[in-house]
Design a protein around this nucleic acid. Sequence first.
DNA 1: ATTTAATATCGTAATATTGCAATATTAAAA
DNA 2: TTTTAATATTGCAATATTACGATATTAAAT
Lengths: 107, 107
Amino acid sequence: MGITKTQIFTEKQNDLAQFFKVLGHPARVAILQYISSQNACICNDLVDEIGLAQATISQHLKELKSIGLLTGEVEGKSMCYCINVERWSEIQSQLNQFFNTTKSKCC
Amino acid sequence: MGITKTQIFTEKQNDLAQFFKVLGHPARVAILQYISSQNACICNDLVDEIGLAQATISQHLKELKSIGLLTGEVEGKSMCYCINVERWSEIQSQLNQFFNTTKSKCC
DNA sequence: ATTTAATATCGTAATATTGCAATATTAAAA
DNA sequence: TTTTAATATTGCAATATTACGATATTAAAT
């Protein structure tokens, strides 16, 4: 199929999975790491830095924006992409909650 | 394409993305939560509990095993699936390291 | 006003993922 | 040894994702 049966899961489960899914691509991991390594907000240095076409980078940025991890502001004719620190912590804490509450008692 | 250009990323980035990716499906989140909610190791109650076909559940279990999150032991004619607690903590700590080292200084 | 540079969007091809029915496989039970 | 129950695997259809070239779009620079 390719389609996911989201109806049979809770909203929390779907949200959590969505966070994981967005982070589940090396380009998006690399984009976040690169942005965080710069003192200033970096835009399409990403195209040079990471070896993917501009259209592809733009697509990945869009997905990162979709869960609120990145914000993009127009800066002249460029874009200034930044990590949304609040959202970042929020998601980190949700993932940790998942890890901490999901513990096996068996075996 | 559908194919991911793993060659252009570091092994760490690929590994990290792979962990995220495996957790990036609500069925797999639900499976982990259900296993952890039981005192004993549960096998194909999962098929009843989660509303997916047996073949589909089996496939998801396989992916969770692929990153070492689950171990499966034969128990008579059933399987006993358990969370690998060591691996669990290891992955949690890697994800946290990613979150903690990736911080924005801009905006 | 034109050009230029940066980014987004569209269309498309290739591949991956999800899900299931049907069919193995395996081990206990009869 | 045949049956039964639990799980894995295979094959397939439908949809999603990844990647890119081509084409908008937008704002500064000329």
